[in-house]
Amino acid sequence: MRLLAEGLSARRGEDLIFKDISFDLAGGEALVVTGPNGSGKSTLLRVLAGLLGADSGRVRLKGGPAGFDHPRELSHYLGHRNAMKRELTVEENLIFWQRFLGDSPGGSGDGLVEAATAVGLADIIHLPFGYLSAGQQRRMAMAKLLVAYRPIWLLDEPTAALDVSADRLFAGLVARHLERGGIVIAATHQALGFTGVKSLEMTGFFH
């Protein structure tokens, strides 16, 4: 499976955010998008997730499962916000996303406990999500990537609010996903600690 972006450009309102971005990722490859604030990292990810329309160019999927030609439905998107409800317990949150998202063809998600163990927080999944600290909440949001299988991970500042050890733990999760033939695109402005990845530097426009 290959994920191709061809001459992408995007606008927000009247402003051109970026233009002519192309890349080609095969299974097992990662792309780290770097750049200063406002250079369009998040916008690029939202275009890839299908949440924003591209102004020109297109995103394609080659050799993926039949019936999927946009990566949207095969992607996990981890935005700035965690998409978890404070009032529900971590367990209820994860079960909801597991059942709501379902597995993409070609793989299956981890169990709840496995996923929580993978982020090192297996013993607090019975607590309400709102009780957790910011870093723990972020880690649980990563557990959400594990409970339902998606070949493509779109991660927007995934390690915000994480300490160094959690950073390492997260790099391990990404490495495991890549080993299994997944694709990871991460926008960040700090070193993520995984090696052997493509990188894309966005400069942004200055009007």
Binding site: G120, D123, I124, L127, Y131, S133, Q136, L169
Partner: peptide
């Protein structure tokens, strides 16, 4: 107690 548990959780495993 639950808040306490949340604060403590994950510290031991992750300690370098």
């Amino acid at each position: 107690l639950r808040r306490q548990a949340a604060r403590n959780a994950g510290r031991e495993q992750l300690a370098p």
